[in-house]
Design a protein around this nucleic acid. Structure first.
Lengths: 211, 211
DNA sequence: CACTATACGGAACGCACGCCCCGTTTGCTG
DNA sequence: CAGCAAACGGGGCGTGCGTTCCGTATAGTG
């Protein structure tokens, strides 16, 4: 959804640019939500290469209806990704005042990695893979990066995370971890081990000499 | 190439099943090599979603010629990947009798990660992403896994690598690292840092409590 | 209830891609 | 050099997918 926190929360819609738009008709809103939900499921499970007809079918809607709400497949994909990122940013903000910076960082990193491991669209978006997001440097990505940077910086100052890496490095590590988990048919145990390797690699103590 | 170490090393060809086939005509062999070379470049740079016509064009050859040598696009992709893996297995075997098991393991893992970071087909193959390889459990993949297992086991016994992970875990980590590197526009410095994080995570000392 | 703007669905279009076919060319052999 | 099997190339076919269009249905309004 372009705006509005929960589906069908309000009849009024705010476009991306902030301008007010006439409220949608009831059936239109319902269909829009269905499409978005189907898209979340489909893109999450299979990534951006699910066909739009398939999404329309799963939403119980004609293809034309999808295009009335989202000008392009890419726009629909972006909407899904943005929603997910928005949720993540909120969660990260909630962790911002955790008294233990190391724990706050770890919690969020694990959350993001696990989310990415089950939502292929997220990995694609973070890795600039598959559909190319126009707004690769959009406000949401920016917000996510910023809040992660905040958590990282605090964790580094607290001596919980190695000091030689940047936010972008962490994002790359996260992306790789999520990709590895969801593409290696990882069960819970393997997922746990892969995350453990990642976390040990991110820790501050014993920075290894480069090989 | 289905067999034969260097392009145009011999006029005789051995098919996948080991049966002898009449030697190729000179122009056929030359074109076959050109196609394979173009495919290596294309698949390496862009992954499996380069069009076959594009590969044919880069090879200076008609599409029909490609299909005379490789029955399907997938077969061509497999041929490229198999070649790469064969090279890697050879390198790994050469490291097998290194007196320092930890170093041998590290060298190969770094080699594999860096190779994957520059050859998208490899990452796709290892991650079962993109084109689905029929021979996902082919001899070459098996060989690569086995030789890596050997290196890993020795490194673990020597106390250089954490003992709680399996070959499949290491393959997953490698895949993720390669993916992260090639999809984050990583320069040399970032690549070095990402590899450092991976290696630190793989080390034996200080296995962190799971988060 | 009638009327209209709004929204719907799915047939249709254009395009790109994997793959095949066949008239033509070319390397090999006697 | 002649003859033929082998190989070539690129036009063409079928399919799937993103996108558009338009005749039909319906929610909102007075």
């Amino acid at each position: 959804m372009t705006r509005s926190d929960t589906p069908a929360s309000d009849a009024r819609i705010t476009a991306v640019d902030g301008s007010e738009i006439r409220p949608l008709r009831a059936d239109a809103r319902r269909n829009r939500d269905r499409v978005l939900e189907a898209a979340r499921t489909s893109f999450g499970a299979e990534g951006s290469d699910v066909s739009l007809d398939e999404i329309a079918r799963r939403a119980g809607v004609g293809a034309g209806t999808v295009y009335r709400h989202f000008p392009t497949k890419e726009a629909l994909f972006e909407a899904v990704v943005f929603d997910r990122m928005e949720e993540l940013v909120e969660e990260a903000c909630a962790l911002s005042d955790d008294p233990d910076p190391g724990r706050a960082f770890s919690s969020f990193v694990e959350r993001l990695a696990r989310e990415g491991a089950r939502k292929r669209d997220l990995v694609e978006a973070l890795a600039h893979d598959g559909i190319h997001l126009q707004l690769g440097e959009s406000p949401i990505v920016r917000a996510l990066t910023d809040v992660l940077a905040e958590l990282l910086c605090r964790a580094q100052r607290a001596g919980a995370v190695r000091s030689d890496i940047s936010v972008d490095d962490v994002m790359a590590v996260l992306t790789g971890a999520a990709y590895a988990i969801c593409h290696s048919r990882a069960d819970d145990e393997r997922t746990r081990r892969l995350l453990a390797v990642m976390f040990d690699g991110l820790r501050a103590d014993r920075i290894a000499a480069a090989v």
